[in-house]
Design a protein around this nucleic acid. Structure first.
Length: 286
DNA sequence: CCTGAAACCTGTCTGC
DNA sequence: TGCAGACAGGTTTCAG
C-alpha cells in the first residue's frame, strides 16, 4: 500500500487524530509486543520493548516513504514496504471484550489512553527501527519531491547526471524519496514521457513538465487520502483516478489508444504507446 | 555505472 | 475442485 501519499495519509491521521481515533502526539507508550522478530530491524525484541516502554510520543512525521516518530528519548522509524499498515484500534471492543490481535499483526504498542497502535503486515517486508539519530536510517535518501530547493533546473541536472531508464531512476529512493510504482507510471503519463527514456536526454522543458507532473500526481493522491487497492482498504480514493496504472487495454484518456503493460526492472509498467513515444514523434514498441 | 535476477513473504486471482 | 503460475503499493544484494 505505501507510496508517499499513503504514508502521508497515515502520518496525518496519527498526528491530527482521525475520529474516533485520537492523535497519538503527547501520548505515552505503555508497552510494546513483537510478534515477528525480523520486523525490528536494528535491535532484538527485548531491547526494543525495554527502550520503547514509557516513552512519550513527540510528533508524527514523514521522510520519503518512512514514518518518523520522535520520542522523548530516541526515534521510532517505520517503513511499511509492500503490505504494511499502521492503525489505531481501541483496547476494548464495542461489547467490552478485549481486542484480539489479528493474524498479520507484527508489532503492537499499547498507549496510555487504551488504544493499540498496530503494525499489521501480511507479507512481513515492513521494518521498524529505534535509533538515537534518524540519519542512521535516512542518510542515503534523495530529496523530497516537494522540497522547494528542488527547482526544475536542479531536477534536470540530477537527471542528466545519470544514464538510466527514467522510471527506475524516479523510483530509486537515493535519487528522489517517495515515488513508487503507481505514482511513477501516473507521473510519466502526465508528462508524456516513455518510461524507458534515458535520463541524460531529458531536456529542460521535459524536466520541468516531469517535476510538475510528479508533484501533481502526489498532491492528488494525498488529496484523495491515498490509493486503496486489493484487500487492504483504508478509505483512500485515488485508485478511482488512475489514468494508466492497471488499465491495460483500456483507452488512453488523452488519445484513446489502448494502454500497454510492459515489465521494467521487475515492475509492471503501464503507459500509452501513442502519447509516450520512446523516440521523438513516433509510435514505438514497449 | 547500469541492468536484470533473486531473495525476503503471504495472499489472490486466472487458467487449465 | 485442485493446482500451478503470475502477480502485488518495496528494498537489498549480487552477477554480468
Amino acid at each position: 500500500m505505501p507510496e508517499l501519499p499513503e504514508v502521508e495519509t497515515i502520518v496525518r491521521n496519527l498526528r491530527q487524530g482521525n475520529p474516533p481515533a485520537p492523535s497519538i502526539v503527547k501520548t505515552i507508550i505503555k508497552s510494546s509486543t513483537v510478534f515477528w522478530k525480523k520486523t525490528i530491524q536494528n535491535l532484538n525484541p527485548e531491547e526494543f520493548n525495554s527502550k520503547v516502554e514509557k516513552r512519550l510520543v513527540m510528533n508524527v512525521l514523514r521522510r520519503g516513504k518512512y514514518l518518523h516518530i520522535p520520542l522523548d528519548e530516541g526515534h521510532l522509524i517505520i517503513h511499511l514496504r509492500m503490505s504494511g499498515d499502521l492503525t489505531l484500534i481501541p483496547k476494548l471492543n464495542k461489547d467490552g471484550t478485549p481486542f484480539d490481535h489479528q493474524k498479520h499483526d507484527r508489532v503492537v504498542f499499547l498507549l496510555e489512553d487504551d488504544w493499540w497502535l498496530v503494525f499489521n503486515d501480511p507479507r512481513k517486508f515492513g521494518r521498524i527501527w529505534l535509533v538515537n539519530n534518524p540519519s542512521e536510517v535516512f542518510y542515503n535518501l534523495g530529496p523530497d519531491p516537494f522540497d522547494p530547493q528542488l527547482t526544475p533546473k536542479c531536477f534536470q541536472t540530477m537527471l542528466n547526471q545519470h544514464n538510466r531508464m527514467i522510471k527506475p531512476l524516479l523510483m530509486d529512493q537515493t535519487f528522489l524519496a517517495g515515488m513508487g510504482n503507481i505514482y511513477t507510471d501516473e507521473a510519466l503519463f502526465n508528462a508524456q514521457i516513455h518510461p524507458q527514456r534515458t535520463s541524460d536526454q531529458i531536456d529542460y522543458k521535459q524536466a520541468t513538465k516531469l517535476l510538475e507532473s510528479i508533484q501533481f500526481v502526489l498532491s492528488e493522491g494525498i488529496r484523495r487520502n491515498g490509493a486503496s487497492i486489493d484487500w487492504v482498504y483504508r478509505g483512500g480514493e485515488f485508485q478511482n483516478y488512475f489514468q494508466v496504472y492497471q488499465r491495460i487495454g483500456e483507452p488512453c484518456p488523452r488519445c484513446g489508444t489502448p494502454i500497454k503493460r510492459i515489465v521494467i526492472g521487475q515492475r509492471g509498467t503501464h503507459f500509452c504507446p501513442q502519447c509516450q513515444p520512446l523516440k521523438s514523434g513516433g509510435e514505438n514498441e514497449g
